Simulated scan of single mutants.
Amino acid sequence: MALFVIEGAAWMKRNRSDLPWTELDLAAPPGRFTAAKIAELGQDPPRCRALLAAAGNDSRPAPDRRVSETCGYQDGTALALGITPAPAGLVTSCPVAAALTVWERETQAAAQRLLGTEVRRFVHAGSFSCRRLYGREEGAWSEHATADAVDILGFELADGRRLSVLRDWQEQGAEGAFLREARDAACRSFSTVLSPDYNEAHRDHLHLDTADRGPGGWRACR
């Protein structure tokens, strides 16, 4: 019995990110509950910013933006990542900045392993957009309406290569494999990840969002 307790304690210490009650650490490898914990940070912007700082992320608060009762944000974050957003000056919610902190570390590792180089920039189509899902006139609001999402179109590598989700997703070599691994890495820190494998509407980008569905909330990775 004592051995079982000791082994159980050792397992929990090694796998803290897989436990729902442990403190989120953005510098640690992501686990089963990392995405849900990051999404919850939308309820506590000061804690979110403290966790960013503890992980060495220099992102800074951005001015609040309020378009209507359903559109806007109070935890805007001007991103400062190792993988630079292009165009520059991207502002997201704080949870998205936190999720990108975890994601970029795994994405850089995939780039080194598959492509033998680093990612310098990710090309994006923005974060905040006051609109409903798929631009419909009725129905649920998009996570973009609160800057809790970002759409990634491709990557610029340190060796000069440019990868496009639209052009290279189905490529069967290392470049296509990297794009798919970047998607899979996002699934470990974002609540929702939608790629060209999901539907035609996402044929040219990766949609990443931090929808807060609660501690045991479901995740979408397609």
Rank of each mutant, 00 (worst) to 15 (best):
A98H: 06
R113Q: 15
W21M: 14
L19Y: 11
R32K: 15
L19H: 14
N15D: 04
A78H: 10
T34P: 10
R66D: 02
L19Q: 15
T84C: 03
N15C: 08
P87C: 04
A111T: 03
A28M: 08
R113T: 09
S68F: 08
P61G: 07
R105W: 09
R105C: 01
D25W: 01
F33W: 10
G72L: 11
R16E: 11
T101H: 05
C94H: 09
A78Y: 11
C71G: 10
R49N: 09
L90R: 05
T84G: 03
A62F: 14
Y73C: 01
R65Q: 09
L3S: 11
A99H: 09
P61E: 12
G8I: 00
T22I: 05
N57R: 10
F122Y: 13
L3G: 05
G72I: 14
T101Q: 10
Q43V: 05
L90K: 07
R49V: 06
Y73Q: 06
A55M: 14
D64M: 10
T77Y: 01
V91G: 08
L41D: 04
Q108F: 07
W11F: 10
R60L: 15
A54C: 11
A62Q: 11
L3Y: 07
R113C: 08
E40G: 09
A98R: 02
W21C: 01
E106W: 03
P45G: 07
L115T: 11
L79Y: 02
E23N: 13
P20C: 03
D58N: 13
A27I: 01
V119F: 02
L26Q: 00
T101C: 12
P30R: 06
D75Q: 09
A62H: 05
V67T: 12
L3C: 12
P30A: 09
A35K: 11
N15K: 15
F4N: 02
L90A: 09
A97C: 04
R14I: 03
L114M: 12
A27E: 02
A55Y: 02
T34L: 13
R65W: 10
L41M: 15
W11M: 03
A88G: 09
T22H: 13
P87H: 00
F33G: 03
S59H: 04
L90E: 04
F122Q: 06
R113H: 07
D75R: 05
A50Q: 15
N15L: 02
E69M: 02
P20M: 08
V91W: 07
D75S: 13
A55G: 06
V102Y: 00
R60C: 01
P29L: 06
L115D: 11
K37H: 00
V5L: 15
S68W: 10
P29H: 04
A35S: 15
L52F: 13
W11C: 11
A109P: 06
V102T: 02
P95C: 01
A99T: 08
A97I: 01
A111P: 14
A78I: 04
T92V: 06
D75N: 14
C94K: 08
V119E: 00
W11D: 12
F4E: 14
F33K: 03
M12N: 05
A110W: 09
R49L: 14
P20T: 01
P61K: 11
A80M: 03
L51W: 10
T101D: 12
R105A: 14
T22V: 13
T101F: 02
I38G: 01
E40W: 10
E118Y: 12
L41G: 00
A55H: 12
S59D: 00
P45Q: 03
S17C: 06
C48H: 00
L51N: 01
I83P: 04
P45K: 09
Q74L: 15
